[in-house]
Amino acid sequence: MWNRISKHHLFWPLMVLAALLLFNLIYKPAFFSIRIQGGHLYGSLIDILNYGAPLILVAIGMTLVIATGGIDLSVGSIVAISGAVACLLVSKSADQNSLGIVLTAVAVSLGLAIVCGLWNGVLVAGVGMQAIIATLILMVAGRGIAQLVTSGQIITVSSNPYEYIGAGWLALLPFSIFIVAAVWLAAAWLTRRTALGLFIESVGSNATASRLAGIRSRSVIFAVYIFCGLCAGMAGLILSSNVSSADGNNAGLWYELDAILAVVIGGTSLNGGRFYLSGTVVGALIIQTLTTTIYMIGVPPEITLVVKAFVVFAVCLVQSEKFRNVLTSKWRKRRYQAEREVTHHV
């Protein structure tokens, strides 16, 4: 029973998340306290879910891309483009509180995010370019596009409907949590209740064999890159609306790396094939909890990334079955030698 539980793909990610939460509870006993203020729930756990929502969205899209054997390094730039375009359209409006203007800005931003995903899909599936190179192009160019949209400045908006996307509340909880839940449920249903999930895993395992078996590999790759771009676009809207501003230079910076780490921590292999959306969500929560913990204990900003990298490295080692087997074999060998010595003395 223990072997079956310990080999489950969610076991070690959940154990790491539990360890982080336990550390926070010991360091700050009020960490788990949740209070109702003004009809809203407040607390560290709510903050982790709220601030981790954009990363979870990006990581969900990244999971499907990685499952096909690809990678998307442009998600951070798409986050910046989406937020910049939306804030620009809202800021240029005479009535920023107009629901129609906000919906138009959201639609245009998500449309551009889909176009960005389609561009990556064309380069990877259509042209045959390596995914890391194809998405690296948009990663660099996209950041420049976001800065062009904002003219190198921070665009601020004062729109209650737009602010509601990332800073609004629904049924006591932040509205961003419901966006993430809807996207995760839709992705889980499409990949586990239809044949799409099998197609994605088949393409990731062997694209040529999948094509020969009748699977439209190119269409599958197009679909996952478009979906990943859409997820990054929604993340950009949440990020920008949460602070009522858009920063083309820093918005979504390094999100692609955090998303890849979340996918790997969640148990999905970078080689493609089998993927775990639930594991990705847990991985993203681990990264966000780790970030919250680092800030809470007062780690100096100049070494924050070093501490974060070290912890993530340790987490990946713990998850490695080969690494655990090496440790276990050494422990068993030492135990066997100790028992032999005791028997010899007796």
Score class of each variant (00 low, 15 high):
Arg216Thr: 00
Ser240Gln: 12
Gly83Pro: 11
Leu88Trp: 10
Gly168Leu: 15
Ile114Thr: 07
Ser176Phe: 05
Gly144Ser: 06
Leu138Ile: 00
Arg218Val: 05
Ile60Lys: 11
Ala67Lys: 12
Gly100Met: 09
Ile265Gln: 05
Phe32Ala: 10
Tyr336Trp: 07
Gly126Lys: 01
Thr289Lys: 13
Phe323Pro: 03
Thr280Ser: 08
Ala207Asn: 13
Val102Leu: 09
Tyr276Trp: 14
Met62Ala: 14
Ala30His: 10
Trp331Glu: 00
Ala105Met: 10
Leu10Tyr: 08
Ala30Thr: 13
Glu339Ser: 15
Pro29Lys: 14
Ala246Glu: 06
Tyr336Gln: 02
Asp47Ile: 00
Gly38Phe: 05
Gln130Met: 07
Leu41Trp: 12
Val346Ser: 14
Asn24Glu: 15
Arg211Leu: 14
Lys7Asn: 11
Asn97Arg: 04
Gln153Asp: 07
Phe310Gly: 15
Ala30Phe: 08
Phe11Cys: 13
Ile286Pro: 06
Ile5Pro: 12
Leu45His: 01
Trp254His: 12
Val102Gly: 09
Trp12Phe: 01
Ile145Trp: 12
Trp184Ala: 14
Gly144Met: 03
Gly166Glu: 14
Trp189Ile: 15
Asn325Asp: 08
Thr150Met: 09
Ala213Arg: 05
Ile71Tyr: 10
His9Glu: 15
Gln147Met: 15
Ser109Phe: 05
Ala105Phe: 09
Ala86Val: 07
Leu327Thr: 00
Ala182Leu: 10
Ile265Val: 03
Ile56Asn: 06
Ile221Ala: 11
Ser320Gln: 10
Ala94Thr: 08
Ile286His: 06
Ala67Gly: 12
Ile137Thr: 14
Ile71Trp: 05
Val282Met: 08
Gln319Met: 15
Trp119Gln: 04
Glu321Ala: 06
Ile101Trp: 10
Trp169Ile: 06
Arg216Asn: 15
Ile260His: 06
Val281Arg: 09
Met234Thr: 04
Ile177Glu: 01
Phe313Ser: 11
Thr135Asn: 13
Tyr295Met: 12
Ile114Cys: 15
Thr280Gly: 03
Thr135Gln: 04
Val203Thr: 09
Leu138Lys: 05
Leu123Phe: 11
Gly279Gln: 13
Thr156Lys: 14
Thr156Gln: 13
Thr343Tyr: 14
Ala309Gln: 05
Gln319Thr: 04
Val306Pro: 10
Val90Lys: 07
Phe11Tyr: 03
Trp254Glu: 08
Ile155Phe: 12
Gly204Leu: 10
Phe310Lys: 09
Leu20Gln: 08
Gly267Pro: 08
Phe23Gly: 00
Ser93Ala: 15
Leu99Lys: 07
Leu88Gln: 04
Leu17Asp: 06
Val220Asp: 13
Ala309Leu: 14
Val79Cys: 05
Gly197Pro: 07
Ala181Met: 05
Arg143Asp: 09
Leu277Met: 06
Val122Phe: 08
Gly70Leu: 01
Ala232Lys: 06
Gly152Lys: 10
Pro29Glu: 02
Thr191Asn: 12
Ser98Phe: 05
Val85Tyr: 02
Tyr336Lys: 00
Phe32Trp: 01
Gly248Phe: 00
Gly111Asn: 07
Gly229Phe: 03
Ser109Asn: 08
Ile34Arg: 08
Thr68Phe: 06
Leu99Ile: 10
Ala262Met: 08
His344Ala: 15
Ser269Tyr: 11
Ile145Asn: 03
Cys116Arg: 13
Leu110Asp: 04
Glu256Ile: 01
Ala30Val: 00
Asn97Gln: 14
Leu230Thr: 02
